[in-house]
Simulated scan of single mutants.
Amino acid sequence: MPTYIVTAKENATPEQVESVKQHAKDQGGEIKHEYTLIKGFSVSYPDDAVVSLESHEHVGTVELDKEVTTQ
């Protein structure tokens, strides 16, 4: 399964962020890392179900996790 970086909306409460994580788990996702500087987490998630995650009311962004390099 691909891994995605999920961020909650800026005004999301801690409870709302937890509801996003629970939604991801309920849809077959596996939380890989929880971030402390942003309201977000990485999750391995079924590629064919990502639309469900993107449409959650407290989700701000969902981006495919990929390697970043500097030049």
Rank of each mutant, 00 (worst) to 15 (best):
M1A: 12
T3P: 03
T3G: 05
Y4K: 09
I5E: 00
V6E: 04
V6Q: 07
V6T: 06
A8I: 00
K9G: 05
K9I: 03
N11S: 13
A12I: 02
A12V: 01
T13W: 00
T13V: 02
P14H: 00
E15A: 11
Q16N: 02
V17L: 00
S19A: 06
S19C: 03
S19H: 02
S19Q: 05
V20P: 05
K21T: 05
K21Q: 13
H23T: 12
H23P: 08
A24W: 05
A24I: 04
A24D: 01
K25Q: 06
D26E: 04
Q27I: 12
Q27Y: 12
Q27D: 07
Q27C: 14
G28M: 07
G28S: 04
G29Q: 04
E30T: 15
I31L: 14
I31N: 06
I31M: 12
I31F: 11
K32R: 15
K32D: 06
K32S: 13
H33S: 12
H33C: 11
H33G: 10
E34I: 15
E34D: 07
E34S: 09
Y35R: 00
Y35F: 06
Y35M: 02
Y35W: 03
T36R: 14
L37G: 09
L37H: 10
K39S: 03
G40E: 01
F41D: 00
V43T: 06
S44D: 07
Y45L: 05
Y45R: 08
P46Y: 05
D47I: 12
D47R: 11
D47W: 05
D48K: 11
D48H: 14
D48Q: 13
A49D: 08
A49L: 13
V51W: 07
S52H: 14
L53E: 00
L53W: 01
E54F: 04
E54Q: 12
E54D: 08
S55P: 08
H56D: 08
E57K: 13
E57M: 11
H58C: 09
V59A: 02
V59F: 01
G60V: 03
G60S: 12
T61H: 07
K66E: 08
K66Q: 15
K66N: 12
E67G: 14
T69N: 14
T69W: 13
T70W: 11
T70C: 10
Q71H: 15
